[in-house]
Design a protein around this nucleic acid. Structure first.
Length: 210
DNA sequence: AAAAAGCGCAACCGCAACAAA
DNA sequence: TTTTGTTGCGGTTGCGCTTTT
């Protein structure tokens, strides 16, 4: 008996309904069995992915907020590309969503800022303060914006919009180090906080003792 | 106005870890 | 203990839409 060829590519609305019904009855486990018994011509793997990344009722379907962006940055700095681990700290967000967001937004943002910092440090040394009272303040968005303006470096419209966006958005990406490593800079409130500070601004703890 | 480039996102692929037989 | 099947993860791709030239 020849098996029906499995479907690939975008999911149709009927398939979504069929999958949701199957999960309601069989539960979100045993994806292979679910795929077969539901009549969907999809692999269990594909069903799982569709459910986890799109159909799950507890998913958020809006834009990533500034708080979430900040948390992603913090956690990515700490854990690297451990997207599923990062996603666990952002309820309603999927690893795929965070991964895509990082690739399309934050990575570029970080690279541009790093690149800007490098060029500024060589071309506009006087415009970029590098230290303040024992703290190594490499740059922040205000300094970056004004420094770039003060430099005679040609910019494309795209760069101008990017810089404008970076200047307006909060929190920004900065690289600030405190001489006491147990202190972290709270980008959201723009202040230094102690790592063992009991007042946590986040719904979820950033440091889990690892 | 049209072509090219950029972007965002859903989905696929390969691999490793885990569980069951 | 080994084999086989399933699940979960991270990287990558493809496609449609938007923006730029």
């Amino acid at each position: 008996m020849q098996e029906l060829k499995l479907r690939k590519g975008p999911w149709a609305e009927e398939e979504d309904e069929q999958l949701a019904a199957a999960v309601a009855i069989l539960g979100g486990r045993k994806w292979d069995a679910l795929a077969k018994s539901s009549g969907l011509r999809r692999s269990g793997k594909s069903c799982r992915l569709r459910w986890m990344n799109y159909l799950r009722p507890d998913l958020k379907h809006g834009n990533i907020t500034a708080e979430e962006e900040h948390l992603i940055l913090e956690l990515h700095e700490k854990w690297g590309n451990k997207w599923s681990k990062i996603a666990q700290r952002l309820p309603g967000r999927t690893d795929n969503e965070i991964k895509n967001y990082w690739r399309s937004n934050l990575k570029k943002k970080v690279l541009v800022l790093e690149k800007s910092n490098n060029s500024l440090s060589s071309e506009c040394d006087t415009a970029c303060p590098t230290s303040m009272d024992g703290e190594s303040l490499l740059f922040n968005d205000g300094i970056l914006g004004s420094s770039i303006e003060s430099c005679d470096v040609p910019q494309s419209p795209y760069e101008n919009r990017l810089i404008e966006w970076m200047s307006n958005c909060t929190p920004d990406i900065t690289k600030i180090e405190h001489e006491d490593e147990s202190w972290k800079f709270d980008y959201y409130h723009s202040e230094w906080i102690s790592e063992d500070c009991t007042t946590n601004i986040w719904e979820f703890p950033l440091w889990d003792g690892e």
